[in-house]
């Protein structure tokens, strides 16, 4: 049964979830510190194009991944400086970051447009486990990044909920003045978490060229993954493990078309693409109304610059 379209689609959905989850986990940390970064798509593009070039030059997967992640982090530093130090409007800065990221990545990617990349992630087969029905191809025949992503989500969940540092981070996102009054360095926390956000978005972008389609194209490589990641953070109510589950769901929406067509279900691909955004609105409206906001978990200080003098 493992070569049925359905199982293949599920396996592909899990792979498609990896870059979405990586970027969304990063954005989650940034938003939990109180900084909304709409520039995810831009940071992913930068991560993808630099990872391609690093992979091309070094031939080493992990070097390429690290370079892509680092480039994303450097890029997010612009946002951190504008929004944390200069207290610029986070929405405006994030959107400008998308425009800049698109421009820079297209410009430096001009020479490699359409070229193939030989360095890419290959699935590891877990021996006999990979032959198990259904779970074999879905869970035990994936490339290392999938396992890293799952571990990462768990680590971030532990960090947020079970550690002192995570408590400080949540305090900064909920009530920076309170955090400040007990000695938490608000600006530093925000810088660090915005940059981790950039790091993971960059890694997600890098994975798109290293793990999915080993080529670079400005409009095809990310194809809106950054925006889906933004939706996912809201969909998952700012909770890491829900981000992981939501990523599989959104990944499925991106890959289900093939299977549905085989089943004779004729849903246009465009409607499937709308699904993550539609679901996010529904979740937000139903669970996110003003009265229930606390339970949904939007950080109270999200989007608001912190000014100590006006405490």
């Amino acid at each position: 049964m493992n070569d049925t379209t359905f199982v293949l689609t599920l396996a592909a959905s899990v792979a498609a979830a990896v870059p979405i989850a990586l970027a969304a986990l990063g954005e989650l940390l940034s938003e939990r510190s109180g900084v909304l970064n709409l520039g995810v798509e831009g940071m992913m593009l930068i991560g993808a194009v630099t990872a391609f070039q690093a992979g091309d030059a070094s031939g080493n997967l992990w070097v390429a991944l690290a370079v892509g992640a680092a480039a994303g982090a450097v890029f997010s530093l612009i946002h951190a400086f504008l929004c944390v130090t200069l207290r610029a409007n986070q929405i405006v800065s994030g959107l400008a970051l998308v425009i800049f990221g698109t421009g820079v990545s297209t410009f430096i990617g001009k020479s490699i447009e359409g070229e193939p990349l030989d360095t890419d992630f290959v699935p590891t087969r877990w021996g006999a486990l990979a032959d198990l029905p259904l779970v074999g191809p879905v869970l035990f025949d994936q490339d290392p990044m999938m396992y890293i992503t799952i571990v990462l989500a768990a680590v971030i969940a532990f960090y947020l909920n079970r550690t002192r540092a995570g408590l400080a981070l949540r305090a900064v996102g909920e009530s920076p003045a309170t955090a400040d009054s007990v000695g938490v360095a608000v600006a530093l926390q925000r810088y660090v978490h915005v940059m981790i956000g950039g790091l993971l978005a960059g890694a997600g972008g890098a994975y798109l060229v290293l793990g999915q389609v080993p080529a670079w194209s400005q409009d095809g490589t990310t194809a809106g993954v950054g925006w889906i990641a933004l939706a996912l953070v809201v969909f998952a109510s700012w909770k890491p493990m829900r981000v992981l589950l939501g990523a599989f769901l959104f990944g499925f929406a991106r890959r289900a078309n093939f299977w549905l067509q085989g089943e004779g279900v004729d849903i246009p691909a465009e409607f499937l693409s709308m699904l993550p955004y539609l679901l996010t609105i529904i979740v937000l409206v139903v669970w996110g109304s003003r009265d229930l906001q606390r339970r949904v978990g939007a950080p109270a200080a999200l989007g608001i610059p912190y000014i100590r003098d006006e405490r």
């Binding site: 504008l82 200069l86 405006v92 800065s93 400008a96 970051l97 425009i99 800049f100 421009g103 410009f107």
Partner: peptide, 13 residues
Amino acid sequence: LMLQGAILLCAIG
């Protein structure tokens, strides 16, 4: 496009 982004970011700052 790159210059547009750079100008927007610098102008915000």
